[in-house]
Design a protein around this nucleic acid. Structure first.
Lengths: 373, 373
DNA sequence: AATGCTTGTGAGACCGGTTTCACTTGCATA
DNA sequence: TATGCAAGTGAAACCGGTCTCACAAGCATT
């Protein structure tokens, strides 16, 4: 009669079957809602399960059926609001279809990504959604397919990997943003990204390891050529991740004598770093420096001045990736699809016409000479 | 000889054993690094596994051992940077100890939370970290313990649930922030939170369903009493979540004739909403309105003016929760602990002395009378 | 009355690991 | 020489479900 607090054993179908006085098979049928069970017996089993507080063991079910009802998502950085929103798109779509989502961070590191893929496969996910950290060295992704699990790429393309992919048209978006700046009279326009490259400077398209960056830079250069901007690649910067190093790269760019008059930031974190650097250089946005950034982060519309952004359909991106994956999981056979979503520019207040801008502004005007190095 | 592309079957220990010409048991021992295996045999098995590209099936292993090496985390809103950072604290700590993390959103809904708990238990997590959506109706959490799985509460307390908990001292932090504002001369100070309550107005501590909010409000009222502020509860607002409704609540608060001269925002999203509302009311921060917010979000230090914040040790909060949970999983027996971390105020530029502020400022000064309703 | 079909049920194999137990062998000890 | 012990190995049980198959009962058809 006494209740031991260390009753760790869980209730199984066998227990339920015993109480309902039926076989294990019948009890499982009644609870799992498959096969055929008599109405009266079914009632008895369900009642017994309720009394015992029975819960299925999903692991055992997965073992037996081969289906886990779980999809795995691997992104570079969950804290990045871009991926946060994309993951919500995935989750909402997956949940609606009865799937659970498990999430992993690769820290934009291909080794961690490989490990994460292994773990997820070992845990028996039905399919994977990956934002690959690199365009090359993706043998581990091919291995997923070879193991018979569907895979969908999120936001980033891998040339040569012919599978479903959900992408944003970054090339068109960048060209459009560039046109906006050019039409405002800007000729020296910077492009700043956190992605690492052999050098902080532009050294050629072939040194870029991420399709997103590649497309945007291509769009940037193409747009610059059409507008006949001189040496557009001079103002491209890589590796401007948060931290001292990234801050230095941006700071140097903004303090050069022929500094750009406008910056295109590749994500909202970079935009913040640009704003910090501008501030410590004594530059006011948009009076001395125009700014456009990828991603409509929440703060961009609340600050003064509100920031003009390239709003990517991030939530939809995740949703479409999940939709495609689930179709594959459910056995649809069809040619690989690529879902290319358009970004939209939201004009706010961070871009000024060049003739209004105070380009020759002396940096650190507010600081006294004594404080200047 | 031909390679069929639909070879979905995975390689098992039995396959490896066959190739290495040993029993399944011995192969498993060699691969799993347990029991005793002869050196030469072990080599042979490992070589066979390599040649077959064998990977363990974690599910089968979990079934057999009862340990999954996975901990579950359930938070209200992954997109909230607060939880994002806390989850990273959990992940880093868990990864270092060899655990995987699976993540779920409750959308601050107790029903979804219950479902998420069930799913995670069914998936066989070794333990759970939960930021409960409510202080009451937490039978599902007790059920976790009854099933023999350790549970740690993150950021939010549940009275009567005597288990390990990682908390921030919100009461002390709120009092300190309030003192900061009082010392700057403010007497009408608002507290705005996203948490839902029966009414947007303060109706008593017993109507608050979240321990975090309860502690902060208690600190707020206590500090206000010590400073002899008149009717401090008049400026408390609940349910100021993002969206039209929340915006309305904040807008009303700021447009009242005796509006507060300073606002304490309970998270960084609310702070943005306050800034939007202030802006559309024609109030400039901090000239017309001082602002302090919980959480040192990335944008708070980059904007103009930089925002004074209450920096919570969010990452550490997650890390400590994970540390405590893993100790329990590894069998430590000890009395429930509560880890109470201190928050720290970072003074920046969003608080002005009251005598400098332009309190009698006429709202919407910039708007022409024709545009006014 | 014999046949076929449908429905309900139970026994037992199966998923892919781990773990217990029994057994063999080699070597040291008494 | 007999005994004890440790190391190495294989057979089979086990985890908790699903699913196949065999079989029985009930009913309709011929």
């Amino acid at each position: 009669m006494e209740k031991r607090p260390t009753m760790h054993k869980q209730v199984t179908v066998a227990d339920v079957a015993r109480m309902a006085q039926v076989s294990k098979a019948t009890a499982a049928r009644a609870l799992g809602d498959y096969g055929t069970v008599g109405a009266e017996v079914k009632q008895r089993v369900i009642e017994a399960a309720r009394r015992l507080d029975y819960r299925v063991n999903e692991l055992a079910r997965t073992m037996a059926t081969g289906r886990s009802g779980t999809i795995g998502v691997i992104v570079g950085d969950i804290e990045n609001p871009f991926f946060g929103l994309a993951v919500r798109g995935v989750s909402d779509c997956a949940k609606a279809a009865g799937f659970d989502v498990i999430l992993s961070n690769s820290s934009e590191d291909i080794v961690e990504e490989r490990a994460a893929v292994d773990v997820m496969l070992a845990k028996g996910v039905d399919g994977l959604i990956v934002a690959p950290a690199m365009m090359r060295g993706t043998a581990h992704l091919e291995a997923v397919l070879k193991r018979g699990r569907p895979l969908v790429l999120l936001d980033r393309d891998v040339p040569g990997l012919d599978i479903d992919t959900a992408l944003v048209d970054g090339k068109a978006a960048t060209k459009e943003a560039l046109r906006l700046l050019v039409e405002a009279g800007h000729r020296r326009i910077g492009y700043v990204t956190a992605t690492e490259a052999p050098s902080p400077r532009y050294t050629g398209l072939s040194d870029i390891t991420l399709s997103t960056v590649l497309n945007r830079i291509a769009g940037f250069l193409e747009g610059a050529a059409e507008a006949a901007l001189p040496e557009p690649e001079r103002y491209i910067r890589f590796g401007a991740s948060s931290g001292v190093q990234g801050q230095g790269i941006i700071g140097d760019l903004l303090s050069a004598p022929d500094r750009p008059t406008a910056i295109l930031a590749s994500d909202s974190k970079i935009a913040l770093d640009v704003m910090r650097a501008a501030r410590s250089a004594g530059l006011v946005v948009p009076r001395h420096l125009s700014l456009v950034t990828f991603d409509d982060a929440d703060w961009t519309s609340a600050v003064e001045p509100a920031i003009t952004v390239i709003a990517q359909p991030t939530y939809e991106l995740g949703r479409e990736a999940a939709r495609m994956l689930i179709e594959r999981i459910q056995g649809e056979r069809m040619a690989p699809r690529r879902c290319l979503l358009a970004a939209k520019i939201i004009v706010r207040e961070s871009v000024a016409r060049l003739e209004v801008q105070d380009v020759k502004h002396e940096p650190r005007r507010k600081t006294s000479p004594a404080n200047q190095k």
